[in-house]
Design a protein around this nucleic acid. Structure first.
Lengths: 230, 230
DNA sequence: CAAATATATTGTAAAAAATACAATAAGCAA
DNA sequence: TTGCTTATTGTATTTTTTACAATATATTTG
């Protein structure tokens, strides 16, 4: 390589994944316990330097799977962080990705140099190394924006869900309360959310109707200029 | 450096700037004519490899100034592109930024290895090297989203502007037409847009009233939960 | 089995916002 | 004075948002 170019080709790139998971306790984020330097023995976002023969988006998926066993997630790029001194080993740019999953549908298992992998309640996250706290804050903002504009919320609930569950989900993520009647009115006015005819059972109170999300209908609406907006 | 790490630290990072400019002809994008390899003698987005001792956001500003002379712009990061084969010299990740300016307020002058710098109408952009066409498309989408949500449109017009000019601006960027009466109603209902008491002169028809944008009032509204939305 | 408990479900009126639609006004030029 | 060009304005209708509380249905308890 040209000597003039040499000096540019000395950077590393990492990905850091912010995986949000939802369960009955609310919104959580997945962290790993680092078993490798730098910042060995810290909880951190599951991220790693990426191999230079792999496309960026593919790397995000690979890194996550390699550290936590999670696979088949849809990951979205959110932003690149590139402060000069963000990594002690040299110039490392990190590309942050985020994903949103239903915790009970996946099993996380620490792998590679990750000693543990665990879910932390979103309001109870420890100090993280690098600029991971900053990344997490940014991801939370993105999540709020996205969940208002895209029907990703449904992917966090069981296939059949009650409107109360849905409302709790939105309230947890947006950190905001909605009027029960108005919320239901709005949701039911979107005709890609359908009554299954089923009801909850084994609950100690009036059982709620179960609904399901119809992605096919949603996609049809989207293409005809519909705008999901909570 | 640890030999195991060596292999990661061989990437380069570039920034590519999508600078949108508005004038009476509509929306334009700034391109440079490359006087350096690769893709010498092509029009391309003003971008360059970045020096590894500079923060990412600073690099975006520096690169743009170095190639086009533009400075004191507010640049926003939009996305990182990292296909393995996007650059012929090696693994180069590029971070795309965008900015929005009033053409007549700035003078562009090709510098460094840029042989020319010129504005191209947004609907008349040539084939670009690397993945620059893809980056540009992405930036256009971002611009549409942002201009609906933030009052950045005002930064593209003279300090004093007419409502017709403002409407033409929005119509050019969003590629959509608005009803004259409803548009004015909506704009004037935002009380951070004020009548200056002045009128156009030297026009060959009824002169329009001149308005101005009051950023201070807007910021006050924002912090109290107001949501700009066109 | 009646009462208590817990959550689910529903409607309506008022206010606000969005939409559709066309006539008149104010300059300049011929 | 007339014609040309762009600027400006209002109203009725529809749609959407908001605020607000009583009743229903299941289980558990006494």
């Amino acid at each position: 390589m040209d000597l003039n170019l040499q000096k540019y080709f000395q950077a590393a790139v990492s990905v850091d994944n912010v995986v949000f998971g939802f369960d009955e306790t609310g919104l959580n984020v997945l962290l790993i316990y680092r078993g490798a330097d730098p910042y060995r023995n810290c909880w951190a976002l599951p991220g790693d330097l990426i191999s230079l023969d792999t496309n960026l988006d593919t790397s995000a998926v690979t890194v996550l799977q390699n550290l936590t066993g999670l696979q088949h997630l849809y990951m979205d790029q959110i932003r690149t962080f590139g402060r000069v001194d963000r990594h002690p080993y040299g110039r490392v740019f990190t590309v942050a990705y985020f994903a949103l999953i239903k915790i009970e549908d996946y099993r996380v298992s620490a792998q590679s140099w990750a000693e543990e992998a665990a879910w932390f309640p979103i309001h109870d996250v420890p100090d993280l190394p690098f600029d991971h706290n900053e990344i997490l804050e940014f991801a939370k903002e993105q999540l709020k924006m996205k969940i208002r504009k895209q029907p990703i919320g449904f992917e966090l609930l069981p296939k059949h869900f009650t409107l109360s569950e849905l409302q709790r989900l939105y309230e947890a993520i947006l950190d905001e309360e909605f009027d029960v009647r108005n919320f239901r009115k709005k949701i039911l006015s979107m005709d890609f959310i359908a009554d299954t005819g089923l009801k909850q059972n084994a609950v100690t109170h009036r059982p709620a109707k179960l609904y399901k999300y119809n992605a096919r209908k949603y996609n049809k609406l989207i293409t005809s200029g519909f705008d999901f907006d909570l």
